[in-house]
Write a protein that binds this DNA or RNA. Structure first.
Lengths: 188, 188
DNA sequence: TGTTACATTTACTGATCGGTTAATGTTCCA
DNA sequence: TGGAACATTAACCGATCAGTAAATGTAACA
């Protein structure tokens, strides 16, 4: 495999891990599903752990990019965007390949907060939170950090709930709660 | 192992799975950590999957029992209890053995919603939700189901956030959001 | 055409996976 | 004391785990 095919390997590994789980998908199966021999995979990544971290960082970039762009398509005011973020979530939940969040799942399989895979998940959530804080600041909320973190709690909760019980009504309910919180922090 | 030691086996297996994860803890390690030979374990449980389901059902009973009792110790009005549930969460988060929620983690390792282990997790969350709905009804909230489900989103989000980023401020922030939501549904 | 360099495959390592078989205690009653 | 019943152990099963070594294929350049 030439060096230029590394991104394709990461992309295919992402699909495999998303579908099957990090521990459950072994390197042999990964080689099969990516169409790349194990030896070639290990040319690019020293360990499975390194590959997973690369997959997560790729996912981070792709997801945040999609999320922000979608939100900006859906609304053009800060408050509108804070709310629209839940519509974007709903689209994600309703998709065929939604199997919870790859970062939450990673942190559940690699429990130690100091584990590189766990840290990659922490980073993703921190960056997402920073984006929401920015929106809350633009909106002129009384306590933007507090509001943003509360909205993030609703988002994480919605992800878990949509995965465990199914996606119906979950994002809409989270959005309704978000509306109440936003209204509170904009009038106090 | 006599039949009477089955509960102890479940209890020890719970600790092992909580500490190490469901897939990561193999049956050999489980035998070592529970002090029970594999053959004896398989006398009580046909498969590892059956054992995990038994562990989860035990955890469900134990956790809900603790949760409800703690809440009723902390407050004696329905609204007080809705809020106190977040203080109980905080106590859980701050404990030494907090490694996210065993049911969330189970649903993350066994992704298929039809999988028995996933279903056991769904059941636990459904029963918890039912309890919170009951409190919201007692409180006389305008839309008790909606309020309760929104509070549940905050709880699930808090669990994930406390696990990924650490427990500091998480439950308190969720409680602050809960206060706003409760206030809204009690005055409208 | 011969050679160097690199990509890729096959076959393998020891360890561990979930689960089973056969042998060895141990207990209890006749 | 003999033996049926049951609990427990150790050894083993084929499959798979993450990772590696050796062999093979392929391309570029001299």
């Amino acid at each position: 495999m030439s060096i230029s095919k590394k991104p394709q390997l990461i992309e295919k590994a992402l699909i495999a891990f998303n579908k099957g789980g990090y521990q459950a998908v072994g390197m042999d199966r990964l080689a099969k599903e990516t169409g790349t021999s194990k030896t070639s995979i290990y040319k690019h990544f020293a360990t499975k752990e390194d590959l997973i971290v690369a997959v997560l960082n790729h996912r981070d970039e792709k997801f945040r990019n999609w999320f922000v762009n979608r939100i900006e398509e859906l609304a053009d005011t800060p408050i509108g965007r804070l709310l629209a973020s839940f519509d974007a979530l709903d689209e994600w939940f309703q998709g065929d390949d939604f199997l919870s969040c790859m970062f939450i799942r990673a942190s559940c399989e690699y429990l130690d907060r100091e584990h590189p895979i766990h840290k990659a998940s922490e980073r993703h959530k921190r960056l997402l939170t920073a984006y929401v804080i920015g929106l809350a600041e633009q909106a002129g909320a009384a306590e933007p950090g507090k509001l943003a973190r509360q909205l993030m709690l609703l988002k994480e909760g919605a992800i878990i709930t949509a995965h465990i019980h199914g996606p119906d009504c979950v994002a809409a309910n989270a959005k309704a709660a978000a509306k109440i919180l936003i209204d509170h922090y904009m009038n106090n």
